[in-house]
Design a binder for these strands. Structure first.
Length: 450
DNA sequence: AAAAAAG
């Protein structure tokens, strides 16, 4: 379905067109007309489906008429993390460039002053994380009585993070005859209850079954041992010819240490985790988007919703404890129709986690390198690797010209010669001797439970 | 077991 047929204004269509879009995604085609008809909506969609634009676009047209009054925002969008809230704000700026809408982004970790000033001038859209919103509300800086459009984004994540009481609290402060849109990747019972309580006669629009597999993402398990993880990761980064990757760890300390180790080894690596102050988080994300760094080591703060174009690989340095997180993490690649590859390092103690992931997704993730045990030390098999020397110069045109100019060849996604090739290119890898290049660790012979 | 979010 074309955006032009959905009933959006000409100004909006121009902004959409200039952003390079013409076709609405299924969630957009389903949600936008109903929002314009003032229906309540339950949108069940994974991130990467165009979910954000499905509420941002119609909101811009709805809010185009009327004017905001001091401290009385006309609409409110709640997001679970600061990064997600900021991303929604960016969407409003991008698509609202031909409208005179005012907006305030209320997130923690930054000064309140500017946020309060914006509120006092009056805003059409308030985009907030629950903590800061409640804080400012309790200080009397916000009146929610004029707010008749509410969006709850990533509701299941809000649940995980314990925000549901806050959400309920906020809902009671909004006018009862408002329009409410709730988006969630999954519909666990507490979210259903929330929807029953605060939405009226909602229309449910579901585009992809939760946890259904994105066929654009190739998934692999890579068996390793705890102490061999860094070597395994480095081997993968090299053999995969990684273009842009996010590496997920379970702990903030692991994120920090791994990012440092990668930097020492000469990689353009950065980190993002919740112990960093907000300005560093934002700066690091910007460096990643700009291509200044091409490997972002991250905690689960970046697992959901984060939308960076052109991420070719996701590596789970640690297998996630919660199967949901797995789905969200690997969803950072294979976005917007692009191909992506996701590798999960597994140690014998991860058996249960992997089991749960496979149960959730209904997909048995293949072990990298074909069946069975990982390849032994790559002494032999010279025929297997790099049949063509010119492979590196065979870079395909990437969809991200900005990035392509700054980073080496994009990992060719469709090369027929993708082989296990553990430690490929080791011969030409004369990097610093920092422990990464030591002899092949014994993890390759570690046995794994059936 | 962790991480996230208010400070």
């Amino acid at each position: 379905m074309k955006f032009a047929d959905i009933g959006l204004s000409d100004e909006l269509l121009r902004a959409i067109d200039e952003s390079g879009y013409a076709e609405a995604t299924p969630i957009q085609a389903g949600v936008i007309p109903s929002v314009l008809m003032m229906r309540d909506i339950i949108g069940i969609a994974q991130t990467g489906t165009g979910k954000t634009a499905s509420f941002v676009l119609p909101m811009i047209d709805i809010l185009a008429h009327g004017r905001a009054r001091a401290r009385m925002p006309r609409s409110l969008i709640l997001a679970p993390t600061r990064e997600l809230a900021a991303q929604v704000a960016e969407n409003f700026e991008k698509y609202g460039k031909y409208h005179k809408l005012s907006m305030a982004l209320l997130i923690g970790g930054v000064q309140m002053g500017d946020q309060v000033k914006a509120l006092e001038k009056g805003v059409d859209v308030l985009i907030a994380t629950p903590g800061r919103l409640m804080d400012l509300f309790e200080r009397g800086k916000i009146l929610l009585t004029g707010c008749n459009l509410l969006v709850i984004d990533e509701a299941d994540r809000m649940l995980d993070m314990g925000f549901i009481p806050d959400i309920e609290n906020i809902c009671t402060k909004l006018p009862a005859n408002r329009q409410t849109l709730l988006f969630s990747a999954t519909m666990p019972p507490p979210i259903k209850k929330l929807a029953d309580k605060f939405l009226s006669n909602p229309k449910t629009i579901e585009v992809a079954r939760p946890a259904s597999r994105n066929e654009n993402i190739e998934q692999f398990l890579v068996k390793t041992a705890e102490r061999g993880k860094r070597d395994t990761l480095r081997g993968l980064i090299e053999s995969e010819k990684v273009h842009t990757a996010i590496v997920f760890c379970n702990r903030k300390t692991t994120v920090r240490e791994l990012a440092k180790a990668l930097q020492r080894a000469g990689y353009k690596a950065g980190e993002i985790q919740g112990d960093m102050d907000q300005s560093s988080r934002t700066a690091e994300l910007d460096r990643f988007k700009a291509g200044t760094i091409n490997i972002l080591v991250a905690s689960d703060v970046a697992a959901r919703g984060l939308d960076v174009k052109g991420v070719s690989h996701v590596f789970n340095f640690d297998a996630p404890w919660h199967p949901d997180d797995y789905v969200h993490r690997i969803g950072r690649t294979g976005r917007a129709g692009a191909k992506g590859r996701a590798f999960t390092l597994v140690t014998p103690s991860d058996d249960e986690a992997i089991d749960n992931i496979q149960k959730l997704t209904g997909y048995k993730i293949p072990v990298h390198g074909g069946g069975g045990a990982p390849q032994p030390v790559a002494e032999g098999e010279p025929d297997e690797r790099e049949p063509r020397r010119g492979r590196r110069s065979s870079a395909k045109a990437t969809k991200e010209p900005k990035r392509a100019a700054e980073t080496p060849a994009k990992a060719p996604q469709k090369d027929a010669d993708r082989k296990p090739a553990p430690r490929a290119r080791r011969d030409e890898d004369d990097g610093p001797d920092d422990g990464w290049n030591g002899p092949m660790p014994d993890f390759l012979s570690v046995g794994f439970g059936s």
